[in-house]
Design a binder for these strands. Structure first.
Lengths: 157, 157
DNA sequence: CCCATATCGTTCGTGTACGCACGATGCCAC
DNA sequence: GTGGCATCGTGCGTACACGAACGATATGGG
């Protein structure tokens, strides 16, 4: 009984004499970014052409395809994952035979990563679908809005 | 030896006779959304005022603060989490005494969730910092750009 | 009334994501 | 040189995120 204290039931807490809009979770950047990211991931999974490859695995492989060989930490910086996360991503890619590793001959702390032949083949196949994934994700927007969104996101990253 | 097959080392794969820009991971919506979401989460953690509350826990509590009582599934739909994710979020909030639950008297399948008195107190405290979190996240943008971004994100969610 | 279908909450498995602490290695100033 | 400090990779703990499968309950059509 004591737990249902007096609570106004019928007005959505507008408060404030100033004209500031009410605080709604649905209007907050963080919330919208989470939802948008969820949708983008879902589209990726259905459209990239291999349901077992995740967005982060994909970006890691694409980066390894550009550079021939990268240390784990550097790869992590390039794709925006911290080293603990990178650890798991690389382990899974290695377990599937998509990525190879060897100690860096010039620095014993580092491990150099590269795509296996199979990894290269898969990456090139997935790269064909990459543009379609982005296109589908941006579909609700006009061409101009799409450019704007990419621009604004770049600024806050 | 056999693994370093012929690979052009010096040009970033522009290809294509058409003027289409090269495909760069850094320019894809999904990638930018992931990075932007990471940054937003980091800002949330440092600015919301309680390092133990996550963004999803926060939005759940705010929603429970608006509506008095909600079933777990409905809450999940309102904050955009599937039921499996909701499960864990609610369990943790309950373990900390922030959320209470009781069986729905009208539907034995449902569990009704509500904030405890402590949960209400914490939510109201965090709500004071909510606007600052969004403000900080949007700081790199002008006022007009901020509005644009929220608008565009709403459209693709 | 009863059965097909849908919804609700749970559980399991996998994968990001990050803080923290650790040991090994590299590097630079002294 | 060597000692202090940074960097690299690893391991552990916690938390989101979701698909899939499951049992219990609800509902609507026949």
């Amino acid at each position: 009984m004591r737990s249902n204290v007096a609570k106004k039931q019928h007005e959505p807490k507008s408060a404030s004499s100033t004209a500031s809009r009410p605080y709604r979770i649905e209007d907050q950047v963080g919330y919208l970014l989470r939802r948008a990211h969820q949708r983008a991931s879902a589209i990726f999974q259905t459209s990239i052409g291999d349901p077992n490859i995740t967005p982060t695995q994909y970006s890691s492989m694409v980066k390894l395809n550009e550079y021939n060989e990268l240390s784990q930490n550097l790869l992590g910086r390039l794709v925006g994952m911290d080293k603990a996360t990178m650890q798991g991503v690389v382990r899974r890619l290695r377990e599937r035979g998509l990525v190879d590793s060897r100690p860096d001959p010039g620095d014993a702390r580092r491990t150099l990563l590269s795509l296996t032949t199979e990894g290269q083949k898969l990456t090139n196949k997935l790269l064909l679908n990459g543009p379609a994934v982005s296109r589908e994700t941006l579909k609700p927007l006009t061409a101009q809005e799409q450019k704007q969104l990419l621009d604004l996101l770049s600024k806050i990253v």
